[in-house]
Structure formats: C-alpha cells, structure tokens
Amino acid sequence: MTWLQKSTIYVLLIFFATIYSLPLLVMLSGSLKSPTEIQANPNQLIPQSWQWENYGAAIEAMPFWQYLSNTLVLCLGSVAGTLLSCSMAAYAFAKLKWWGRDKLFAVLIGTMLLPWHVTMIPRFLLLREVGLYNTLGALIVPTFLGDAFSIFLLRQFFRTIPEEISEAARIDGLSEWGIYWRIILPMSVPALATVGLFQFVAAWNDFSGPLLFLSNKDKFPLAYGLEQFVSSYADQTHLLLAAATLFTLPIVVLFFFAQKTFLKGIATTGLKD
C-alpha cells in the first residue's frame, strides 16, 4: 500500500470518526454551558464559561447514586448470568455430540428472529407468578436462561479450539465439566469479554425491561431514571445534557479500556461449519 493510499484511508477514517463523534461533542459542550449561553450559542462547541456545577446540580436533582447502584447490580448480575448460561450451552453445541444437536441449534438461531415484544407478555406473567415483579431479579434471572446471539457467538469461538485438546484431556481422565471449566473457558477470554461487554451495554441501556417489571422508583436503573428526569426538567437543557453525559460517559470509558479485548474477540470468532 502506497503512502498516498494510507493517507487517504486515514483522512477518511478521521472524517467519519468526527462525524459520528459530533453528537457526543455537542452533548458534552452543552452540559458545560449556562442556560443563557445554550440559547444564544447552541452550535458553539467551546463554552465561553465552563459550568462544571451543572453536573452537581443534575446529580442532586435526582437520586443519581441510587439509580447508579441499581444499574450496576443489574449489569453485573446480567453479565454473570449470560456468561454462565451461554458458555455452558455453547460448549454443549460446539464440543458435545448428541442426537438432534444441529437441528436444535437451528431452532435456537431461529428464535433470534422473534422480537422482544412477542415474549413480553408471557415473560411478564411468568415472572409475576414466581414473585419477581417489581424486583431487579425480574431483569437478572432471565439472563441465566441463555441468549441466542451470545450462545451463537461463543459456539463459533469454541469450535475454533482444536478438538485434539479436549480429546487429550479426556484421555487424561478429565470430565466434560473439567474440560469446559479448566480448558475451554481460559482459552476463550476474548470471546467471553466480548459477550460480557455486549450484555453490559444492553443492560445499561435497557429501558423497556424496567418500564415493564418495575414500579418502585427506588429500584429504577439509570436508563429509566433518566427518562423520569427528562419529564421533570424538560425546560432545563443544561441539566438534561449533563445528566445524559453522566449516563453515557461510563459506557464510553468502558469501551475505551476494553476495545483491544473486544476487537480481538470479534476477530478471532470464526465461522467454522
């Protein structure tokens, strides 16, 4: 690749990165402006006076720390449930031979075509019957039952691990559980990190789930709490942008630090038949 071609690619990447980053920059800039400046210079990215107190005011205007703790419990519980259930199911589909395995996997993939609204009412009725309504457990427990996309992603990665490793472990007397726990999982850290990151972001941004299963505001996560904040402070743009920045910043920071593992997990997840 010539110097001109490389330069062209970098220019294009910087151009599109700037375009996609512009909404975030506008949000960050607006969160640091006064109400008067937002109305007078809404398109100016650099504030004339930096209003850092907007963040403190946004935090005080809602039970931010309660929402944050609820969100962290929800995210960490969902990640744990997804990694445990999906990795076990993926191991069964990738490494174990049993009758109807491929047909059942095809049915599993077919469930990805069903929108969440199809299972919304049956899930609500079931979780209400078992006493999980208005608890974070209603949002965490279903993750321990597996997710089709995560199972698919982990299965594809597990199938790239040479079968000779598992066969050697079986000859040495290691059980299937031991192979799964002591060999497959340690070799699949990039894929597990990718699935965990996907699930963390999904749980962090989830609005429909809390809207359906929660009624006590003390149990709201940030996504639902932010919507309530918007309804109460619709006329205070600077506080809305500050609250939106506080909601968005952790995900941006998480991806920034986990991007190498995330990209490695995507790149090494093969499409082996």
Rank of each mutant, 00 (worst) to 15 (best):
L126E: 15
D102Q: 14
P142K: 09
A106F: 03
I184A: 13
L197W: 01
L127Q: 10
V201S: 09
R159H: 14
L136I: 04
L83Y: 11
V195D: 00
Y180H: 15
K103V: 14
K217F: 04
H117I: 15
I140T: 01
L139S: 07
S85E: 13
A80Y: 02
A191G: 13
G110I: 06
F144V: 05
L76M: 14
V79D: 01
F200M: 14
A168T: 07
F207W: 10
E167Y: 07
S87L: 04
G81R: 02
A203V: 01
F213P: 03
K95Y: 08
N216E: 04
N216I: 02
K103Q: 15
F124M: 09
C86V: 06
R101S: 12
I151H: 00
L132Q: 07
S87T: 08
I151A: 03
F144W: 10
P142Y: 02
F200V: 05
T119C: 07
R101F: 05
L84M: 12
L127I: 11
M112H: 11
F157N: 02
W116F: 07
G196V: 02
A92F: 01
E129G: 06
K95W: 05
A80F: 01
T111M: 03
L139I: 15
S78Y: 04
A169F: 00
I161R: 07
I183M: 06
D147C: 11
G209P: 01
S215K: 15
V195G: 00
I109P: 04
V195Q: 02
A106D: 09
F105R: 08
A92N: 00
I179N: 14
C86I: 05
P122Y: 13
T111E: 10
P115E: 09
R128S: 15
T119R: 09
L113P: 05
F149L: 07
D218K: 15
L96D: 03
A80N: 11
M120N: 11
T143I: 08
D102E: 15
I140D: 00
I171M: 12
Y91R: 10
Q199M: 12
A92H: 03
A94T: 03
S85Y: 13
S175R: 07
V107K: 12
V107Y: 04
F124L: 08
F149T: 13
M112A: 15
R128Y: 12
D147G: 12
W204L: 04
A193K: 10
G100S: 14
F200G: 02
P115H: 12
D218T: 12
Y180C: 10
K95A: 08
L132T: 11
S87Y: 00
S78T: 14
G110L: 13
F149G: 06
V79W: 01
F149S: 04
F220E: 00
F200I: 06
L212H: 09
W99L: 13
G81C: 06
M120Y: 05
P210G: 14
F213G: 00
P122R: 13
T160C: 13
Q156V: 14
